[in-house]
Computed example of a mutant assay.
Amino acid sequence: MSLALRLAVRARPSPFPPCRKLLPLPVTRSLHNSPADSATPLPITAHGPPPKPPVPAASEICELRRRQKAERANPGKKLWKEVRVEKRDSGLAILLDKLPIRTPLKKAIVVPKNKPLLADAVALEWSLLNSAQDALTKRYRTPLTQLAARVIDMHEPNTFTPSRDATIKSAMGYLNTDTLIFCAPTTPKEHRHPNKKTLRELQVAEAKPVVEWLTTVLWPRTVIEYNNGDFGITATAQQPSDTEKVIMGWLEGLTDWDLVALEMATLSSKSLLIGARLVAEWSSDVGVGGKSWGIEEAARAASVEVRYQTKIWGEVEDTHDVDKEDIKRQLGAAWLMALGGAR
């Protein structure tokens, strides 16, 4: 093709529309200036399914509720079908079907024949258990069983069961700091209310009849000194040596069942004198009680200061009301241990 023809073709208009001019792309900027690292793939060496994602730890209360719900759904199995009390020559045995309940030292629990209510109460504890595991993990549901086992294993002292002499010594340790005979300091006149008794007056009014009964009926011609708060909170009155000897001799003469009952009452009320009167009033072996002073009176004598303070400042819910019923429960267990009667 000649040069003139080629120039004529170029001058001819194109049948295609003209191309639009492309706009430049926007410039991208990184959020940081650190260079990107290239990934290094590693070989897969794990076997099996991938692990489960982590789960946040539950609180203690949620875990407790979960266990309780599981126990209610699957309470387990009882190893016995019947709980009954059987009369034997040695006393009243509590049987799970045909096997007796045993102490930690593998001795059969046999209650004296003159304590039928205690035997029935121990049998009731085991009747109310949901499973055999409850007997091991929920010991708070079998308090009377533990006290009975404490009596039977007492003559073979071990880590969990102190000896009879150790029990007497522990009870005597409460005498000089006894709750019943402690009197608060005298309230100044400017702080007294004309129509209300002071704490000291309430304490004396509660302790006086108990001390008079102990020093005239149970331990005649003995003298029990009060702890006077006017001399200081830490000042304690030493009881006369003759009084200590009389009380020690009385403790040594108690049966094992009455001694453990006294120990339970003393620990719950923080008062040896309250425990002594409760046991002496109801024990068939002591034989001096008129059965006119019981659990309610003992709990009242042991909680004079608490009742005085809550009357002024109010009662804390789930604290004072629970403590008030709990001390009655513990004193009731001591009362059942000491109680005697024909079946």
Results as ranks from 00 to 15, higher is better:
Leu3Met: 12
Ala4Gly: 10
Val9Phe: 11
Arg10Ser: 13
Pro17Cys: 03
Lys21Glu: 13
Leu23Arg: 14
Pro24Trp: 08
Thr28Leu: 14
Asn33Thr: 09
Ala36Asp: 05
Ser38Val: 04
Ser38Gly: 02
Ala39Gln: 09
Leu42His: 12
Leu42Gln: 13
Thr45Gln: 09
Pro53Cys: 06
Pro56Gly: 04
Glu63Pro: 00
Gln68Gly: 02
Gln68Leu: 08
Gly76Asn: 00
Lys77Pro: 00
Lys81Ala: 11
Lys81Asn: 15
Glu82His: 13
Glu82Gly: 01
Lys87Phe: 00
Gly91Phe: 08
Gly91Ile: 01
Pro100Ile: 06
Ile101Trp: 03
Thr103Leu: 12
Lys106Ile: 01
Lys107Asn: 11
Ala108Met: 03
Lys113Ser: 13
Lys115Val: 01
Pro116Asp: 07
Leu118Tyr: 06
Asp120Gln: 14
Val122Met: 12
Leu129Ile: 04
Asn130Tyr: 02
Gln133Trp: 00
Leu136Asp: 04
Arg139Cys: 00
Arg141Lys: 15
Leu144Arg: 05
Leu147Asp: 09
Arg150Ile: 02
Ile152Val: 15
Glu156His: 14
Asn158Lys: 01
Asn158Ile: 00
Phe160His: 02
Phe160Tyr: 03
Ala166Ser: 14
Thr177Asn: 10
Ile181Lys: 09
Thr186Met: 04
Thr186Cys: 01
Thr187Phe: 02
Thr187Gln: 15
Lys197Arg: 14
Thr198Asp: 00
Leu199Glu: 04
Glu201Asn: 01
Leu202Pro: 00
Val204Arg: 10
Ala205His: 09
Ala205Asn: 08
Glu206Ala: 15
Val211Gly: 04
Thr222Asn: 05
Val223Gln: 10
Asn227Gln: 04
Asn228Pro: 02
Ile233Cys: 04
Thr236Pro: 00
Gln238Pro: 12
Gln239Pro: 14
Ile247Asp: 05
Ile247Pro: 07
Leu251Asn: 09
Glu252Asp: 04
Glu252Met: 03
Ala261Ser: 15
Leu262Ala: 15
Glu281Met: 12
Glu281Gln: 15
Val286Tyr: 12
Gly287Tyr: 09
Val288Ile: 09
Gly290Gln: 11
Ile295Gln: 02
Ala298Leu: 03
Ala301Arg: 09
Val304Ser: 10
Val306Pro: 00
Gly314Asp: 02
Gly314Phe: 03
Glu315Thr: 14
Thr319Phe: 11
Asp323Trp: 05
Glu325Gly: 10
Asp326Tyr: 11
Lys328Gly: 06
Ala333Cys: 08
Trp335Ile: 06
Leu336Val: 05
Ala338Trp: 10
Ala338Met: 10
